[in-house]
Amino acid sequence: MIRSVVPALTLLLAGPVLAQTAPQPYAALKDRPVKALSEQQLSDLRAGRGMGLALPAELNGYPGPSHALESADALSLTPDQRARTKALFEAMKAEAVPLGERLIREEMELERLFATKAVQPASLDAATTAIGATQGQLRAAHLRYHLAMMDVLTPAQVRRYGEVRGYGGADGHRQHGHGAHRP
Rank of each mutant, 00 (worst) to 15 (best):
M1F: 08
R3K: 14
S4Q: 14
V6A: 14
V6Q: 12
A8C: 13
T10P: 00
L12I: 12
P16R: 08
V17M: 08
Q20C: 06
A22F: 12
P23T: 15
Q24T: 15
A27H: 11
A28R: 15
K30Q: 15
D31I: 06
D31T: 15
A36I: 09
S38D: 06
S38Y: 06
E39V: 11
Q40T: 13
L42P: 02
D44V: 04
D44C: 03
L45W: 03
G50R: 03
G50M: 02
G50W: 00
G50H: 10
G50N: 05
M51R: 10
A54H: 12
A57P: 02
L59H: 12
N60L: 12
G64N: 11
P65F: 03
S66R: 10
A68L: 03
A72W: 02
D73T: 14
L75I: 05
S76T: 12
L77P: 00
T78P: 01
P79W: 13
P79A: 12
D80C: 06
R82M: 10
R82L: 13
R84M: 08
K86I: 04
L88S: 09
F89G: 06
A91P: 02
K93S: 12
A94P: 01
E95A: 11
A96Y: 01
V97Q: 07
P98A: 06
L99Y: 01
G100N: 12
R102T: 15
L103R: 08
I104G: 02
E106W: 04
M108Q: 15
M108L: 15
E111G: 10
L113D: 00
T116G: 03
V119C: 06
Q120C: 01
Q120E: 14
S123F: 07
D125L: 11
D125R: 11
D125T: 08
T128M: 10
G132L: 05
L138S: 01
R139K: 14
A140Q: 13
A140R: 11
R144L: 05
R144V: 01
R144Y: 07
H146L: 11
L147S: 09
L147W: 13
M149D: 00
M149A: 00
D151K: 10
D151M: 02
L153I: 09
A156I: 02
E163W: 01
R165K: 12
Y167Q: 15
R174A: 08
H178Y: 13
H181G: 00
R182V: 13
